[in-house]
């Protein structure tokens, strides 16, 4: 076996992604609060469960924040253990909003854990609306935010640790498209130079891309089950991805349907070019027009500052590169075994 530089790079990057992607901790965050419904004019004890937090080892501050920016600070905090504490608030009689029901965010802050937010989860109801009184009772002072120095991944509600799946699920799709692109390059080369080896290369790359696509669908389905609650949603991007898989199954069927090798190569090469052109609007254009749960579609921002921060990017880009290299490697293996089998068959004759 020749271990050329890109195979080594693939191994090193895969190892890097697996190790760093799994070992790096999440930022501390708030997992759960209870109760989730309170009334104004009382002293409420809110139980806060944290994730990856160190409540015991540093001084904690907690706030309730209204959507208008006004907030109140907890008067007392009882730390139970590192992941649980009880904060008691004197909730004033009136809210600083003109609605009778308001969703408050819970903010905890400490020097060691930095600041973490549970956005708009605590529902508070008031009996009568008194906007000016509410504004007087709540303060507008910004809480002291602490940054966190340690290298860690962002904490997102509902996602939690599965944010690491970005490296293993999303990069599969990137690798699939890279492989399809390379195979289309080989198909076009075949159409101009009529060298059957080019067509075989394209065929092996398409097969590997289909493997990646099927794996992407399955892993995506598992991820969806534990974030959105179902194996399969009617999300447009899912359906479009499944459709593009269907198009490439059509490619396999066409190849199986033609006997004459030259004709097979010619027609499947042109179908391959056509298929990629048909898939691009399916995955990149149509999902942007309708609602979608995926980032980058239907008004959701693309991998912008919301979804990806620098700590994720440092693992995500190597993951994409390593999966692309792995795909090339796998398809090269298939290609070489194809060539060998044809050689041995011709030697028999």
């Amino acid at each position: 076996m020749q271990l050329s530089w890109w195979k080594l790079l693939c191994i090193v990057l895969l190892a890097y992604v697996l190790v760093i992607g799994l070992v790096t901790p999440l930022k501390p965050g708030i997992l759960k609060i209870s109760p989730e419904r309170i009334k104004t004019g009382q002293t409420v004890d809110i139980e806060i469960s944290g994730y990856n937090t160190h409540y015991k080892s540093s001084n904690q501050v907690a706030y309730l924040k209204a959507s208008t920016g006004y907030l109140i600070q907890a008067k007392e905090i009882k730390v139970i253990d590192d992941n649980n504490m009880v904060a008691s608030f004197d909730v004033p009689q009136f809210l600083p909003t003109s609605n009778s029901i308001e969703q408050l965010s819970v903010i905890t802050s400490s020097e060691k854990d930095g600041s973490s937010v549970m956005p708009s989860r605590l529902i508070v109801a008031q009996d009568s609306v008194q906007l000016e009184m509410g504004k007087n009772l709540w303060s507008i002072k910004e809480p002291t935010f602490f940054g966190i120095k340690k290298y860690s991944f962002p904490f997102r509600n509902i996602l939690y640790e599965t944010i690491r799946n970005t490296f293993f699920h999303v990069s599969l799709w990137f690798a699939m498209f890279a492989l399809l692109g390379i195979s289309v390059y080989h198909s076009i080369r075949y159409l101009y130079k009529s060298d059957l080896l080019d067509d075989w290369k394209a065929y092996s790359q398409v097969r590997t891309a289909i493997l990646f696509g099927v794996l992407g669908l399955i892993t995506g389905s598992i991820w969806a089950k534990y974030t959105w609650g179902t194996w399969w949603t009617n999300d447009i991007k899912l359906n479009m991805a499944a459709l593009s898989m269907l198009i490439y199954f059509g490619y396999l069927i066409i190849r199986a349907g033609i006997e004459d090798p030259d004709k097979k190569a010619r027609i499947s090469a042109s179908f391959n070019v056509f298929a990629l052109v048909a898939v691009i609007p399916l995955i990149f254009v149509l999902p942007r027009l309708t609602d979608s749960l995926h980032p980058g579609n239907g008004g959701n921002p693309a991998f912008g500052s919301e979804d990806m921060d620098n700590s994720l990017r440092m693992v995500f880009y190597p993951a994409v590169i390593s999966f692309i290299l792995l795909g090339i490697w796998l398809s090269q293996l298939v290609f070489r075994s194809d060539v060998l089998s044809h050689k041995s068959e011709s030697a028999e004759i």
Binding site: L18, Y160, T162, N165, L211, I218, T219, I222, W223
Partner: peptide
Amino acid sequence: GKINVVFAVIFIVFIGIIYY
């Protein structure tokens, strides 16, 4: 924190590639 979902995903990718 749903860490087992991550392991399941990695496992399936691994199984797929080994199968290939």
